[in-house]
């Protein structure tokens, strides 16, 4: 069973992602901001996919992606997909440079989010 972490400071968004992924056979972990996400991923080598918000207190999504690239976790196979709003091409460029492989535009369609995570977890 793949372990997925959802890093987003909005509880509403976390629960929406959780609901979308409920149909998949995943073990879900949540983090409330970038720092929390970093701590949880570092403590758990089983996490294989990260769904990551950009705009968060303490440590934002791009900083978190950078940190995970730097400490080698991305190289070890952690797949990062950003949650972003449409039209922020510049943000996505930064996220890609930081190690994120894909992005999902909010508001997302639950079935497409599920398909994306299933593909990444496979």
């Amino acid at each position: 069973m793949s372990k997925i972490i959802i890093v987003d400071d909005s509880a509403t968004m976390r629960s929406q992602v959780r609901q979308a992924l409920a149909a998949g056979n995943f073990q879900l972990v949540e983090a409330v901001d970038g720092q929390d996400g970093l701590d949880k991923v570092n403590a758990d080598p089983d996490i294989s996919v990260m769904i990551l918000d950009v705009n968060m207190p303490r440590m934002n999504g791009i900083e978190l992606a950078e940190a995970l690239s730097k400490n080698g976790r991305v190289a070890k196979g952690l797949k990062i997909v950003m949650l972003t709003t449409e039209g922020h091409a510049d943000l996505i460029q930064r996220a890609k440079a930081a190690g994120a492989k894909g992005w999902i535009v909010k508001p997302f369609k639950p079935d497409l989010l599920l398909a994306a995570v299933q593909k990444m977890a496979a």
Partner: peptide, 25 residues
């Protein structure tokens, strides 16, 4: 810009095709 970025995603195949198409402008 947004189109070409999402087209790249379509081409690199990391995301499912339906999602990449859905995210085109």
């Amino acid at each position: 810009e947004w189109f070409s970025m999402n087209w790249e995603a379509l081409a690199d195949g990391f995301l499912p095709m339906e999602l990449a198409i859905d995210q085109l402008p």
